[in-house]
């Protein structure tokens, strides 16, 4: 991290850009500290002997042992993961293609369609949950993984779409035209030229979709069956008798697994090169 800008008088002042860069990275560190403050606390408390987690009573691995034996909780975590991954993939597909088509073509009703896409973002979860449940019950569709995933895709794909659209705005239209002139089909042009260019926005959208799905409670409650109950449902239920440090332990394991996954995939990417 660059030091605060206190420079000896005789040295040359760094260029304006460098000062800005320094300030910007310092601020990023501050924001990350803000985001990680509760995470550090909850990981620390996962080793606390006290069940109610109010004061520090001593170090223990007990909660980790309990988590690994709590099959309903592990099962719920597994369900959450399956649901979040599947609905993220579907949201990315729906959102990216949708953003491109809305950007690329002009047709009657495009603005209405655009507005409609934004509606799930503003729709209170309870309304979406209950109305989807009524819909599924009316058409005789059973509750469970499919119903939950439909609900999750509905509220997360608009986030992907909006993120991708922001990136498309101001994209040089000549790029696609060049590809078309060189003999690519429109589909090829989209897949080989546009998608790679959109990748940062797609990644950003996917991260948001995953985050939303992973931690959603209300829509899930109304669309789930016993078999597809997710982690948030279990966690909110457990709050009734006081949050168990087991949940902290589970979160810590998940954070560790994510970080390990990132480094592992980095390593794999290097190997495949």
């Amino acid at each position: 991290m660059p030091a605060a800008p206190t420079f000896p008088a005789r040295r040359r002042w760094p260029s304006g850009i460098r000062i800005v860069d320094g300030a910007v990275s310092t601020w990023t560190a501050v924001v990350l500290a803000f985001l990680y403050a509760p995470i550090v606390v909850l990981v620390a408390y996962s080793f606390n002997q006290s069940r109610l987690n109010i004061v520090w009573q001593g170090f223990t691995f007990e909660w980790y042992r309990q988590v690994l034996q709590n099959s309903p909780l592990l099962r719920a975590a597994q369900n959450s993961l399956v649901i979040a991954v599947v609905s993220t993939l579907l949201s990315v597909l729906l959102g990216t293609v949708g953003a491109w088509l809305l950007h690329r073509y002009r047709f009657a009703g495009a603005r209405t369609l655009q507005t409609l896409v934004a509606v799930p973002m503003v729709m209170p979860e309870i309304l979406m949950g209950i109305s989807l449940l009524i819909l599924f019950a009316t058409v005789g569709m059973g509750l469970g993984f499919t119903a939950v995933i439909i609900g999750h895709v509905t509220f997360s794909f608009p986030f992907v779409l909006v993120a991708v659209q922001a990136r498309l705005r101001g994209l040089d239209p000549a790029m696609e035209e060049a590809a078309l002139d060189l003999g690519a089909t429109p589909l090829q042009a989209f897949w080989l030229v546009i998608v790679p260019c959109l990748r940062p926005a797609i990644v950003a959208g996917a991260l948001m979709a995953f985050t939303l799905s992973w931690d959603e409670l209300i829509v899930t409650f109304f669309t789930t069956s016993a078999a597809s109950a997710t982690l948030p449902i279990r966690v909110f239920g457990m709050a009734k008798v006081g949050l168990n440090p087991m949940l902290n332990a589970l979160s810590a394991i998940f954070i560790l697994a994510t970080i390990a996954f990132v480094f592992f995939s980095d390593y794999l990417r290097k190997l495949s090169r």
């Binding site: 985001l35 987690n53 966690v235 979160s251 994510t258």
Partner: peptide, 21 residues
């Protein structure tokens, strides 16, 4: 980016209780 998102992958309720602490 992942570093930014990982905190959000902890349950909202657990994070909130950490904030209360």
């Amino acid at each position: 980016l992942l570093l930014l998102m990982v905190p959000c992958w902890t349950s909202f309720l657990i994070r909130t209780y950490a904030w209360i602490t």
